[in-house]
Computed example of a mutant assay.
Amino acid sequence: MKLHRIEIENLSSLYGEHVVDLDVDLQGAPLFVIVGPTGAGKSTVLDAVSLALFGETPRLDNSRARDRGDDVDSRHIMSRGTGVCRAVVDFSRAENDGARTRYRAGWSCHRANRQPDGAFQTTRRSLERALPEGGFELLVDDPRKKVYEPHFERALDGLTVQDFQRSILLAQGEFTALLKASADEKAAILERLTSTEIYADIGRRANAMRRAATQAFEQAQARLDALKVMAPDELSDLEARRDAAAERRDATRAELDRRDADVRWLVRAAALERDAVAEEEALAVALAAQEGARGDLARLDEDARCRPASALAAAVERDEAEREALEARGEALAATVTALDARL
């Protein structure tokens, strides 16, 4: 993680708005010292970083303060006589591909009606992510922990406030106690600050794993020692039986191949026989149909033989019709002549 910019408003002794631009003011220096008289606000700058990232400050939220019964509410860091306070931190972290992603984390608090004598209201947490084209996009801005916490966990890549205070920000009270403590007390404080008890736990687990591995090895060795080495003549006999079994296997496979060929031939022969029977049945049906149509064929032959005379018969019929028509007209004319003669 790399810090870039810190904004402070009404935190402890730092009244009003203050900005520390580490990139511009310190030109990105990797190591710097914050100096000043007591009460100047040196620790408040570090408090602002912790508040913006985790919503806690080690000076107000640590085990010694709780043991003393002090009020550990982080909202009490608000400067006296003010109604609002906030802390904003711009930071970046390296991604797996080496690129850096920049975020802007915020913590804010105000009293009722933003008046100095108002009751403390619920704090808000906000988180923004820098855009490639410039500016920031808002990821979350909410007073509810269940809403903002997942966003901060992803942005901080799992870094907890305890990790931050042990590796990056050492609380002033813890450091003072460390300087004044005895050798044994210093060891206890360092163990609490750095969580070196986890290494003792790792050692215990590693020792347990070593014992389990040793036991497993001894059991495997015992099983190996219990194995009986085969005599040369027994080995030769076993190899001969293996070779004989291999020969029987090959012979069996060859016999299976022959049987498969026979089965395929039989299947093909059965299919051909079924096809022959079907062809014979079809031929019988065709012959029966031909026999049934024999009368129709005779009539067709007779029709074909007589068809040339059909035209002559038609002509005779036409001539006969014309003759009858002429006879009818002749009779009609004769009747007409008779009628005329009678009138004359």
Rank of each mutant, 00 (worst) to 15 (best):
E128Q: 10
R129D: 12
P132G: 08
E133D: 13
E133A: 11
G134R: 06
G134E: 05
G135T: 06
F136I: 07
E137I: 05
L139Y: 06
L139M: 11
L139V: 11
L139A: 04
L139W: 02
V140P: 06
D141I: 02
D142P: 00
D142W: 00
P143K: 11
P143G: 06
P143S: 15
K145W: 14
K145A: 15
K146H: 15
Y148K: 01
Y148S: 08
Y148F: 13
E149F: 07
E149M: 06
E149D: 09
P150W: 15
F152W: 13
F152I: 05
F152S: 03
E153V: 07
R154V: 13
A155C: 02
L156G: 01
L156N: 03
D157Y: 01
G158Q: 11
L159S: 12
L159E: 04
T160R: 15
T160M: 07
V161D: 04
V161P: 01
Q162R: 15
D163W: 10
F164H: 06
R166V: 01
S167I: 08
S167N: 14
S167R: 07
I168K: 05
L169M: 09
L170C: 00
L170W: 02
A171E: 02
G173L: 06
G173A: 11
E174G: 05
E174S: 02
E174F: 04
F175L: 08
F175C: 04
T176K: 13
A177W: 03
A177D: 14
A177K: 09
L178Q: 10
L178Y: 10
A183F: 12
A183G: 15
D184N: 07
D184W: 14
E185C: 06
E185P: 03
E185I: 12
E185F: 14
K186R: 14
K186S: 12
A187C: 00
A188N: 01
I189E: 03
L190K: 08
R192A: 15
L193E: 02
L193A: 04
L193C: 01
T194Y: 08
S195Y: 11
T196G: 07
E197T: 12
I198R: 09
I198Q: 11
I198M: 15
Y199C: 13
Y199G: 14
Y199R: 12
A200K: 06
A200E: 10
D201W: 06
G203K: 15
R204S: 14
R205E: 08
N207C: 13
N207K: 06
N207I: 01
N207V: 04
A208N: 04
A208T: 00
M209H: 08
M209L: 08
R210Q: 12
R210L: 09
R210F: 03
R211Q: 15
R211M: 14
A213N: 02
T214C: 03
T214N: 10
Q219I: 00
Q219Y: 05
Q219W: 03
A220L: 05
Q221K: 04
Q221R: 10
Q221W: 07
A222N: 09
R223A: 04
R223K: 10
R223Y: 04
L224A: 11
D225W: 12
D225I: 05
A226E: 11
A226T: 03
